[in-house]
Design a protein around this nucleic acid. Structure first.
Length: 413
DNA sequence: TCTGGGGTCCTAGGACCC
DNA sequence: TCTGGGGTCCTAGGACCC
């Protein structure tokens, strides 16, 4: 079988866009972000600067590092354009994030040539039309294609021939595998496993004892290049959430209320835009020392109303804080809604709302809340998100990061 | 001056049902 | 008196990915 799976990954994406749009930044070590490095150029990576690193640490490693603010609209535009180039070759495209996608070209080789030809064409077009470097891996499986694109970086192409798969895979370090993070890497190192080949030769039993049944099984399979995953062009979301880092703030209502209201507002808006409702609400509180706790509740009836979501989240946060009375300072609040279902149509929703109220005597708020949410949603559709909000949610102070950046990270629900 | 924001999946224990 | 097992759902925590 011919290798027809492509994995395409824009190199140092945010940083590359900044260097594209501002030529004075080219060839220089730059980082997108401030408090935290969101992306680093290859010139910065040479100094050890990595994404996710604290800005201060990055500056220590690279004193001449240039921090740039972030042109989020351009990231979205150029990321979409690059993925669209892939879509010109095949409809079987699975987008993983703003700057990364899998594709299966098995059905279009008669039009465009071999998978390697197609990969070269994609790289050429993204470079010529958009001015951005993109690395591509080609293999028979998603896992191998993804590893190949990592090996190809920066700005390269690696094709893994079927005959050479295990030879290619087994010399590589385990941390290149999908699913091996810092913890697993350390656990494997403790038993002397550093390469994928060493992992492959471990007895399945001991791997499962070390990493759990699911992870052990999965890594064994991947190490032998058994990856059953196919290209999935459409994912439906299982949860929708939002979070806000706070620095250090007192665990007090004047901090918690407006923050939760803002988070609930964002989630509710996204859910309603996709006609989704959710049954489980989870709230997360992170303390000053970065330890975090969660509290969740599963409701009888699913919700999407901003006010209801806010109230439930407040209750959960109160419960979490009550269990940790010594914690006076919090550094992050988060809400997530899961057990998502498709919302019934509007008319059904109204009758459902009435039934719902009948079951919960004393609340005539359900319908009023839906009406208010829909009114706000419509105004925002016309005039933008900032045009209107629920009281304190309009507070800019609770936003530690521009909403444009949040939108970048949001996946299609 | 101790690190953003949005996700997925897995595990383990307990409740509850048959 | 003493002793079962399987399945499902919920909750809390954690590892990992981009």
């Amino acid at each position: 079988m011919e290798p027809t799976i492509l994995h395409a990954d824009l190199d140092a994406f945010y940083a590359s866009v900044e260097q594209l749009l501002d030529p004075s930044l080219r060839g220089k070590p730059i980082a997108v972000g401030g408090g935290v490095v969101l992306a680093a150029s290859y010139e910065a990576k040479a100094f050890g600067v990595r994404s996710g690193m604290a800005g201060r640490r990055a500056r220590e490693l690279c004193p001449q590092l240039i921090f740039v603010g972030g042109r989020f609209k351009d990231y979205q535009r150029l990321g979409d354009a690059a993925i669209a180039v892939i879509g010109d070759f095949t409809p079987l495209v699975e987008r993983i994030s703003i700057d990364e996608a899998f594709a299966d070209v098995r059905g279009c080789t008669h039009l465009f040539g071999s998978p390697a030809d197609i990969a070269r064409a994609i790289r050429g077009r993204v470079r010529e039309e958009l001015g951005l470097p993109i690395s591509v891996g080609v293999a028979r499986t998603k896992h191998l294609a993804k590893i190949a694109s990592q090996v190809a970086k920066p700005d390269g192409l690696v094709v893994v021939d079927p005959e050479g798969e295990l030879a290619f895979l087994h010399d590589l370090p385990v941390e290149l595998m999908w699913g091996v993070g810092p913890v697993t890497q350390a656990r494997l190192l403790a038993i002397g496993v550093q390469t994928i080949g060493q992992l492959a030769r471990m007895p399945g039993r001991s791997l499962q004892r070390l990493l759990g049944p699911a992870a052990g099984e999965k890594l064994s399979a991947l190490a032998w290049n058994r990856d059953p995953r196919e290209i999935r062009t459409h994912h439906r979301a299982r949860s929708a959430g939002a979070q806000s880092a706070l620095g250090r703030k007192p665990a007090a209502p004047h901090v918690i209320r407006p923050t939760l209201a803002h988070l609930a507002d964002r989630i509710g808006t996204r859910l309603r835009a996709k006609s989704l409702v959710g049954r489980t609400v989870t709230a997360r509180v992170r303390f000053a020392d970065l330890r975090a706790v969660t509290r969740s509740v599963t409701l009888d009836a699913p919700i999407s109303a901003t006010a209801t979501l806010t109230e439930i989240a407040e209750e959960l946060v109160r419960a979490a804080l009550a269990d940790h009375p010594d914690e006076r300072t919090i550094s992050l609040l988060a809400i997530s809604v899961s057990h998502l279902e498709k919302h019934p149509k509007l008319q059904l929703e109204l009758s459902l709302g009435l039934q719902h109220e009948a079951r919960r005597p004393g609340t005539r708020r359900g319908l009023a809340r839906h009406a208010a949410d829909h009114a706000v949603d419509r105004i925002r559709d016309r005039f933008g998100w900032a045009a209107i909000g629920y009281g304190s949610t309009a507070l800019g102070a609770v936003r530690s990061v521009p909403d444009a950046f949040r939108e970048l990270a949001e996946r299609e629900l």
